[in-house]
Design a protein around this nucleic acid. Structure first.
Length: 310
RNA sequence: CCAUCACAACCUUGGCCCG
């Protein structure tokens, strides 16, 4: 328990070697890792791009007589899916079945995502259709498919999936569709969906607003973007650095560097982190519209803030 | 004892790389 928490902490902050060190210390002290401990290590390795190492831990786990559970399999299916290794994901899936472990809704959702990553949307859809009454798809399962369809420009198809969801769509579902509709230039569809959200009383969140602001600004609807910002304030949703970066980018594109810089000052006043994305956006605009010397001067401000330019 | 509290799945901004 104790070791597992430490391992999770190190891996989730990218401190792979320290995480591995804790694992070695744990096993060295004679503590026998259980399934949860193995799962934590496997997940930590996967999220740090060490899939091969994760697999060898998985094999060692089985050898040492520790029984993988559904979380173990889901973690690996997810990792293979995200790295577009469908064959690998299927291999884990088959192993899961042959070991008598029933897939749950998470395992299915990960597999749907994996299929979408390799553009097998039909098979993803089939998989969802074949899910049983005991294990029906949830919002995240559908969202995985909708995200795949939207990010490949298949928004009509995505909308038809949305229509099949009944009462399942959640805020993320709407966010994915709104983003997809804007990026496919289906503006009327996006506006309609935003209204539909209100009709269904699905709460917009910060991502919803950021998505709307981005979609509106990128297509010249600045007034409407301001209205969205107004709604945010009414609802008490605080803008974050993504909101500001989106607006700074829009101002830079309109060659309005003055207002872009004003926003950076507002961020600092509001104690929001002015991050690398902010500076990259702003310096790009300054170099384009003001001059390289001024851009260069801003580079020093980045360094002063303790941020490493990329 | 630890079944909301050691483990797994979804969304938005800039850039970079590859194609």
């Amino acid at each position: 328990h104790t070791y597992t928490s430490l391992i999770k902490g190190f891996f989730s902050t990218g401190r792979v070697f320290e995480g591995l060190d804790v694992w070695k210390r744990m096993t060295g002290e004679g503590a026998t890792p259980n399934t949860v401990a193995y799962n934590t290590l496997i997940h930590g390795l996967c999220t740090n791009r060490l899939k091969d190492e994760a697999i060898s831990v998985f094999n060692r786990m089985e050898r040492d007589g520790c029984i993988p559970n559904i979380t173990t399999y889901s973690t690996l299916i997810d990792a293979f899916g995200k790295s577009e290794d469908l064959a690998g994901a299927c291999e884990i899936w088959n192993k899961m079945i042959s070991n008598g472990c029933q897939p749950n809704v998470i395992a299915y959702s990960c597999m749907v995502n994996g299929l979408c990553r390799v553009h097998m949307y039909d098979r993803a859809y089939e998989l969802i259709k074949n899910m049983s009454k005991e294990c029906p798809p949830n919002a995240l399962t559908f969202n995985a498919l909708i995200k795949g369809l939207c990010s490949s420009g298949r928004v009509e198809w995505a909308m038809s999936v949305f229509d099949l969801m009944g009462k399942l769509p959640n805020t993320t579902t709407f966010n994915e569709l709104l983003d997809g509709l804007f990026k496919a230039n289906h503006f009327d569809g996006a506006f309609e969906l935003f209204k539909e959200m209100e009709r269904r009383e699905i709460e917009p969140n910060l991502v919803t607003y950021n998505t709307m602001i981005h979609g509106l600004c990128q297509n010249g609807w600045f007034k409407e973007a301001l209205q969205i910002i107004g709604k945010m304030f009414v609802r008490g949703t605080r803008p974050d650095s993504v909101t500001f970066n989106t607006l700074i980018n829009a101002y830079c594109q309109q060659c309005d560097i003055k207002n872009a810089i004003k926003l950076v000052d507002q961020m600092k006043a509001g104690k929001l982190s002015v991050d690398l994305a902010t500076y990259t956006t702003l310096i790009c605009g300054i170099c384009k519209w003001v001059g390289l010397e001024e851009g260069n001067a801003w580079l020093y401000k980045v360094l002063d803030d303790g941020i490493l330019p990329d």
